[in-house]
């Protein structure tokens, strides 16, 4: 079990690949650190199916695969072809296997994965930008979040309740401008409780990792 908490090696061929795919940065590393911190809770879920929406370089889903283990199927999506390709390569480079799908959010999977996703990760495009910068492909799609940086996140939040298994956990990366309190209220309406697993300042961004579980979930957090 040595080295399961090591930061994954990236599967890019050369640095220029990051012209088209989001290069892991403080937000990615905070998510990794918080998944590690929450490891006991992740294992308590006894996951069977995990899904990352917008997997980018693949560092997060690969890390999740490292710390949760092999008896699990890992799906990931991205709207950017170069990103799903790199995700696959990153997983492979670290001896892990993921099932990548090129699609918008979880569109092509959500019907079949209804109520089955035990761990769901989403590091959305959260940067506050004008609405018309919210992109459908390319590198802009990895960060441009529109009004409050919430336009893409808000499209996905209503789907979480149908995707997540009864004991499942959803981890979301946000910045302060995304208004985490408002997200908490919104998700409460879908039957979820929120816990901020950790926060960190990185330059101008105040980043947090929010975790959502169903009100009825036994997975709780005396960490």
């Amino acid at each position: 079990m040595d080295g399961i908490f090591k930061t994954p090696m990236l599967g890019n061929q050369d640095p220029a690949d990051f012209d088209a795919v989001y290069e892991p940065a403080e937000d990615s590393f905070l998510l990794l650190d918080m998944l590690e911190k929450d490891h006991a809770n992740l294992m308590a879920i006894n996951p069977c199916i995990c899904l990352e929406v917008g997997s980018g370089s693949g560092i997060c889903i690969t890390f999740l695969a490292q710390i949760v283990g092999r008896s699990v199927t890992y799906f990931c999506t991205d709207i950017n072809l170069k990103a799903v390709e790199m995700t696959k390569a990153t997983a492979h480079k670290n001896g892990r296997s993921v099932e990548p799908v090129l699609c918008n959010l979880a569109d092509a999977l959500e019907h079949r994965l209804e109520g089955k996703v035990d761990v769901l990760l989403f590091n959305p495009p959260y940067v506050v930008t004008p609405s018309d910068e919210v992109a459908c492909d390319g590198i802009e799609a990895s960060w441009a979040g529109g009004i409050k940086g919430r336009e893409v996140t808000d499209k996905f939040l209503p789907k979480v309740a149908s995707l997540l298994s009864p004991e499942g956990a959803f981890y979301l990366v946000v910045i302060k401008e995304n208004d985490p309190d408002d997200i908490e209220e919104l998700m409460k309406g879908y039957g979820f409780r929120m816990k901020c697993v950790g926060s960190r300042r990185a330059g101008r961004e105040f980043l947090s990792i929010l975790r959502f579980t169903r009100q009825s979930s036994r997975v709780d957090t005396p960490l």
């Binding site: 072809l81 390709e85 696959k88 990548p100 799908v101 090129l102 699609c103 918008n104």
Partner: peptide, 9 residues
Amino acid sequence: SNGIPNMLL
């Protein structure tokens, strides 16, 4: 392609 289904519409 390359083991990745393209489900974009």
